[in-house]
Design a protein around this nucleic acid. Sequence first.
RNA 1: GGUGAGAUACUCAAGUGGCCAACGAGGGCAGACUGUAAAUCUGCUGCGCAAGCUUCGAAGGUUCGAAUCCUUCUCUCACCA
Length: 431
Amino acid sequence: MMTNFVEEIRWRGLLHDIMPGTEEYLLKNKTAGYIGFDPTADSLHIGSLVQIIILMHFQRAGHSSIALIGGATGMVGDPSGKSAERNLLNEETLAKNITGVKEQLERFLDFDKTSSKNPAELVNNYDWMKDISLIDFVRDTGKHITVNYMMAKDSVKNRISGENTEGMSFTEFTYQLFQGYDFYHLYKENNCKLQMGGSDQWGNITTGTELIRRKAQGKAYAITVPLVTKADGTKFGKTEGGNVWLDAERTSPYKFYQYWLNSSDEDAEKYIKIFTFLDKETIDALIAEHKEAPHLRILQKKIGEEVTVMTHGKEAYENAIKASTILFGKATSDAIKSLDEQTFLDVFEGVPQAIVTRSQIENGIDIIAAFAETGFLKSNGEVRRSLKENAISVNKEKVKDDFIVTTKDLISNTYVLLQRGKKNYFLLKVA
RNA sequence: GGUGAGAUACUCAAGUGGCCAACGAGGGCAGACUGUAAAUCUGCUGCGCAAGCUUCGAAGGUUCGAAUCCUUCUCUCACCA
């Protein structure tokens, strides 16, 4: 049984553009739809999460979702939304990226043919592109699309006219034909009638529907989703530390959770619709509740929970909560010492460290030396100043200038947590 | 190639012989407040506990004393060609 996929993404604010007739067609026919993922890195980031979620909705609505990995198109480079020529990836990197992206998609989409009634499918366009010769491609595909048509696309226009004099290589110009061919291929082989993607993909997608119309006299559909934005105008999915990745190695579950938790109220109302699968009533209730008591940040916590559990699993989510409580709550040094070493390291992943010897700590390290000589703070004077400001903590407890760091302060018998202010952490590690 | 202007701390920018570790603004950091937010208020922002030490494009020089005057060099900008 199919549900109204278009209506579902519409109320969630996930519908940017839709080809006329798409909604009606999807209501009457079970079909397949696809979204392409370019393997530009060995992990996807939360920007791609939107596309993944669209595929999940599509699958839930009773259709078949196809995730396409751009093994071939990734070698060409999509000019959409780019003002300058892209660097090409070498094959080795590309292979590694494809593997990484594949693994991540599997966490979200059900590809299992035995358990699922309408399993999702994972395809790599390299599989069919690699065997097409240039002559075949030019004769069989290129013949159907005019250069005039291709030139009219924004992604091309922006690069060959106006202010931008950088120009565009033939390689990138060809990209839309590659993507169009993918759609044609899936249309023929997988009964795929719909391509979805970010709003910048509209041009590339319609090249595909055009190709299908001319080459196969068929009708195919297109839907694009809006770019996720932040109310303050900064880029979604970026922190000072860089992208927020879906890979736990690159962005720890703790940081991942924190990213959502730190959403502004305004963004949170949008995000809960986009990134969670909660139904409308639940979301409306949560929004109302949040407005009553904004300081409790009900929305942010819920989004954090849903998305973190979906991406990293329940256990990782609970650890993230525990870590957050310790870092930002009124944690005592006892609570910190109660952490097992792994959780402790996860929480303080990326925190700078310095090595001290066991004998040093057994003799006791003067608080000024502990902060200055380890390189945490720049000078003794800075430590003294911070002490005066009451900004120095050891294991989450404020200390005075006569404090001596000794073995009793060790966590897991190995670490001492130094802190200046609320957000600057530093670890002493006993070697 | 010619002429002129300039180079001061993270950034902008005062200072034109001693009162200059150098006004002010922004930024940054911290404290209070708060929702791990924003706004606001307060403090700090070369090293040193201090005496003091090292800083104003670089190197020399004048002077009791130089960011400030002189010489050379490097770089930047403007105008001319």
